[in-house]
């Protein structure tokens, strides 16, 4: 049996009280209309959200948005990890790739939207912005991860006469794994933000579109529902990555 220490138990209890208080406050403000009609009670939002008649609407919007998020997450992740590995292996390319990444990062994604709309199409700009957001986080995480192996470990490999490839596979990659997984965790909300922003720039489907049109048409429960779905999706993926992170940290650090 796993015993939870007293302190940890207290932390969990306090956290639960905090979340319950937040949800309770949300409900209370909504029921008593303390913030006006635009703040609905939590139960009203949930009832709206789970109403069978709106199932198709939400499923369609959610699958459109989440597939953009997922595609951007995978594309950005692969691009970030691969390019960081390339920068690590081919030193002449290192600085140029680093600068390019930080230049791209310093452009706010809203400023890239016109470009994406021109080059791609309105439908894909969500994925493109998600890709860029995720790319930068993973490029940086992988880069610092690949530098994480200690001098002593490198010396062992040198003394044993290891070649570059063996060193990467047997030493640097496992040493980089914790940083990469942490990067993947923090990239989750970034991917969601990217996809939503992209959809605001004129997509014809998705939760981002739902938010904007609900905002403009005073469809308050619809607006809150779309925000709730997006937040829940991000939170759950983040939680999942936290579990993976915990496993990797226990195994590789």
């Amino acid at each position: 049996m796993i015993r939870i220490s007293k302190r940890r138990g207290q932390d969990i209890a306090y956290g639960a009280i905090g979340i319950a208080a937040f949800l309770g406050l949300w409900e209370y403000i909504g029921v008593n209309q303390l913030a006006g009609l635009t703040w609905p009670p939590l139960t009203a939002v949930l009832a709206f959200l789970f109403d069978p008649s709106r199932q198709t609407l939400f499923v369609r919007a959610t699958s459109a948005s989440f597939s953009m998020v997922g595609a951007g997450y995978v594309a950005g992740g692969v691009l970030g990890i691969v390019l960081a590995a390339v920068a690590h292996l081919v030193s002449p390319l290192k600085e140029g790739l680093g600068r390019l990444s930080s230049v791209i990062h310093s452009i706010p994604s809203i400023a890239l939207a016109p470009l994406f709309i021109v080059l791609l199409s309105k439908e894909w700009s969500g994925m493109a912005i998600a890709t860029l957001n995720v790319y930068f986080i993973l490029f940086i995480a992988t880069q610092s991860g690949l530098a994480a192996a200690t001098r002593a470990h490198h010396d062992v490999f040198t003394v044993l006469g290891s070649n570059r490839f063996t060193r990467l596979i047997r030493l640097e990659a496992p040493a980089a794994l914790p940083a990469i997984v942490s990067g993947l965790k923090y990239a989750v909300p970034a991917a969601f933000i990217g996809a939503i922003i992209g959809e605001w720039f004129g997509a014809t489907r998705g939760l981002g579109l739902l938010m904007v049109s609900a905002m403009q048409n005073f469809q308050i429960p619809l607006l809150w529902s779309a925000v709730l779905i997006t937040s829940a999706g991000s939170l759950m993926s983040f939680g999942l990555m936290s579990l993976v992170e915990r496993f990797v940290y226990a195994r590789y650090r």
């Binding site: 306090y14 937040f22 909300p189 933000i193 938010m211 904007v212 925000v227 997006t230």
Partner: peptide, 27 residues
């Protein structure tokens, strides 16, 4: 207070806060 607020704040930093913009705009 710390025990109550820190987990909440961590939840909020793991969701796309920009999605709140339409809500705040309406409020």
């Amino acid at each position: 207070a710390t025990g109550m607020l820190v987990p909440l704040a961590m939840i909020f930093s793991s969701v796309p806060v920009v999605a709140l913009i339409p809500v705040v705009a309406r409020l």
